[in-house]
Amino acid sequence: MSLLEFARGPALEIALGAFAFGVAWRLLSLLALPWSRDRSVARPAAPSALAAAAGGFVRRMWPARPFRRSDLWVTLNGHVYHIGLAIVVFGLAQHIQFIKGLFGLQWPNLPTGLVSLVSVITLASLTVALARRVVSPVLRLISTANDYFSWLVTALPVATGLLAQSHLGARYETLLAWHLLSVALLLAWFPYGKLMHAFLVFLTRGETAILYRRRGVQS
């Protein structure tokens, strides 16, 4: 079995299994915990929980005005690599085919050149994020191995994908295999580390927004 066959077959299968297991495990072990019921009387103008959660989710996309001076660039950079990753993952024709193979869904792709450009920007943005983590005393203090490893497994597919796309450094099948293996690593790690925030963000943003909005806090 060649490396590529291993990557396209067993590696991805194991990774997808690990991903599915981890996501189900973490979400259920969380959602099946007791939910506290807030017995305080909500303000009369409080929106429904769903509206509050949705509003809060959107609100936290961008820092409030007073925080903009300190957070603008960090937030921007965060958006750059999050949006960049989304564009790369969901825009490249090859990726759409991967997703189609798994779920049968497909949509029009973006020009490959654009996606390559976005990958470079994304990688640069991720590098900035890492540099900040390493340089900032605050981030250095609160960072754990999980943070660095999660960064690595996120950046690797972008880097290997760029190499594969540009046929740089090795034969294409090897590059593609590396890329797929790095994706497998990302998937396998995803639910077990901080990347799970992709799911948890809906819970935390939503719940805090519900808490605040029923108190009438416009924040």
């Binding site: 066959e5 396209r8 077959g9 067993p10 991805l12 299968e13 194991i14 997808l16 299994g17 690990a18 991903f19 599915a20 297991f21 981890g22 996501v23 189900a24 495990w25 973490r26 259920l28 090859q94 990726h95 085919q97 991967f98 189609k100 193979g101 798994l102 593609l176 797929l180």
Partner: peptide
């Protein structure tokens, strides 16, 4: 080429159930 050659439906389904 970019799509997985495995048909992970069973594996993923099993993993979800196990999860």
């Amino acid at each position: 080429l970019s799509s997985s050659t495995s048909h992970p439906g069973a594996v993923v389904g099993g993993a979800v159930v196990a999860g």
